[in-house]
Design a protein around this nucleic acid. Sequence first.
DNA 1: ATTTAATATTGCAATATTACGATGTTAATT
DNA 2: AATTAACATCGTAATATTGCAATATTAAAT
Lengths: 109, 109
Amino acid sequence: MGASKTELHSTQHIRIAEIAKVLSHPARVAIMEHIASQQDCICSDLVEEIGLSQPTISQHLQVIRNAGLLKGNFEGKRLCYCLDAERLQEIQSLFNNFFNTSSANCCTL
Amino acid sequence: MGASKTELHSTQHIRIAEIAKVLSHPARVAIMEHIASQQDCICSDLVEEIGLSQPTISQHLQVIRNAGLLKGNFEGKRLCYCLDAERLQEIQSLFNNFFNTSSANCCTL
DNA sequence: ATTTAATATTGCAATATTACGATGTTAATT
DNA sequence: AATTAACATCGTAATATTGCAATATTAAAT
C-alpha cells in the first residue's frame, strides 16, 4: 500500500502527525529557525545558508507553507517570509498537551 | 535522490527531525497515547485499538522503540511496553526550545 | 521592451515509508 | 513434547519523500 489509513485515526492525532511531518526533515527545521532569526524578514539567502539547491529549498518552503506556518508576501521578485507566530503557539500547545498526557501514567519499569 | 543529505545539517536539527518523524504518523501518536494510558502496561490490545494489522503495529512500535521512547520487556509471549518518561521530557524540552527560539524574532506582517 | 535577480514549477530518478500476508520465534500452557 | 498466544521478521506492493536539472514565472532595474 504505502498510503496511511487516515480514516482510522482521530483528527487530533492526524493534526499532530501533520505538524510533526513538517518538522521531520532537518532542512525544514533549519529553514524555520533561520527565517525566525531574520529581523528584516528577507530570506533570499536560504540556499546558501542551508546548502541545498534552490528548487529543493523552494519545495521545503512549500511544505512549511502548506501546513500554515508561513506568513508573508509570496509574489514577485523578492519574498518576505515570516513564521506565523500564532500558529506556532497553537502547535506548541498541541505538542505540550500530547507530551503531558503521554507521560502521565507511565509505569515504573 | 530521495535520501536526505544529513551531512549538511546540525546534530540538533537532525535530532528534532528524528523525533518529529516518530510523531509524523497518526498511528504512532495513537499508539504512544494508548500505551501511556494503560496503568498495567500490558499492551496486547493495540491491534484492536488502532485498527491496523499486527505486523503494521509491530513495525510502528519498532520505530518508536528505535527512537528510544519505549521502555520495557520485549521478549517472550507477552510484552510490557512503557513510554520512557525521561526521554519524553527531554523531547518536550527540545521541542519547546525550538518553538521558543523560532517565535522570538518574528516580524510583524 | 530587455535584461536580470529571485523564486516557483515540472519532470524524473533514487530512496523511504506504509501496509499486510505468510512465516518465524518465543514462552507459557496443556 | 505438542499446542497455543503474542509478537517479530521477511518479502513485497503501493505510495510518498527527497533532491536536482531544466525551465517557467515574476517584478524590478536598465
